[in-house]
Amino acid sequence: MAYVDELALHAIYHYKLAQAVPLSGSTTFAEIAQASHLREDLVERFIRQAMCSHIFTEDAPGQVRHTSASRLLATNPDAHDAVGMITCDLSPAGMQTLSALEKYPNSEEKSETGWAQHTEPGISPFEFMAKNPERGRRFGAGMRYFSSGQHWDLGHLARGYTWAALDRPGAVFVDVGGGHGTVSQYLARETKHVEFVIQDLPGTVEAGRKILPEDLRSRVRFMEHDFFTEQPVRGADVYFFRWILHNWSDGYCKKILRALIPALKKGARVLVYEYVLVDGPETRVSRKQPRNLDLMMLAQFNSCERTAKMWEELLRSADQRLRLLRCEIPEGSLYGIIEAVWDGDD
């Protein structure tokens, strides 16, 4: 009966019920109702349903106080937005996914998904969020919350790859679709010589340049680039993708990878930092997130998370000269490092 738990969470988000409970001490259902403008009987029903999941508790009958979970919703805006993202965006999109699959069988288009059915048919999630900036802001905050914590720490990437072998004068690392440069800035502080080129669309690049720390500007730069077009940085040592390819179905991923080929020198690395699914059932709750994201990618983008075998097949189908070297998950990380080498000529 998980849908009733979700209904209670939606009410907590929409009526800001967690914010109506004091951080110390307790309050009554009537006082919460007055603060949230929701009928007292409904406040009681929603909150007591949430209590079944240890969200809120009662000191005595009718005396509501916080648990660690409800306090988090009251004090962490990103956690609050994450609940909104799930209950207002992702869950309704999931409920529309089978309808989209019936309507658009075998589609690889982002505009023909459960998300599009729920929001605005015919446009992609990116286009929808551009038209609805508050929804986009909430989605970004929710994703920021879910990507925080030790499992997402970039230290896993720093320790999981032999950056010392790359760290020499003249080495170039191209961060494709790198946003504001979070990864490149982190790795720049872990290395001494590597030059970093962060590529993204114009608005993102402009924002990234403004916030780039002064002490990194000698080795880190931004460049406007659409990754579906030919890669302009030729002869780099590494072309890096984080959280890019899982947003795209195989057909589009092949286009992205093939756009690199004119720029690749023999021995160049294509490095991908994304989830690697277990090729079989995963029963550990701590390792369930990649499977959760897999169906989220289906509902939003008509895309997927991939197993090691799927990564190998994707690389090979993009070009036989892209050879998978390894596909490993560093200890303590949720993400895998997928490393391919270009065996073609310069």
Rank of each mutant, 00 (worst) to 15 (best):
L72M: 15
D5Q: 11
K255E: 05
K265M: 03
Q185R: 13
L314N: 01
R221P: 01
A18S: 10
D279Y: 06
D237C: 05
M223E: 11
E195V: 09
P232A: 09
V285I: 13
S36D: 01
A165T: 09
G25S: 07
Q49L: 14
Q199Y: 03
D226R: 11
F126Q: 11
N247L: 09
D41R: 15
L322V: 05
A207K: 12
K192T: 14
D345K: 07
R144V: 06
R221A: 07
R39W: 04
V172G: 01
P105S: 06
K131V: 09
R135A: 13
D226W: 04
D153R: 03
G235Q: 01
S184N: 06
A82P: 02
P92E: 13
H193V: 09
H193R: 05
D345F: 02
V174F: 00
H37N: 10
E127Y: 01
T75K: 04
A100L: 04
E224I: 15
S303C: 04
G267A: 10
D5L: 15
M51C: 08
Q199M: 05
G267T: 09
T67V: 09
G84V: 15
F228H: 08
W115Y: 14
L245Y: 10
W342D: 00
Q49Y: 02
L315H: 00
H156P: 04
L298R: 13
D167C: 10
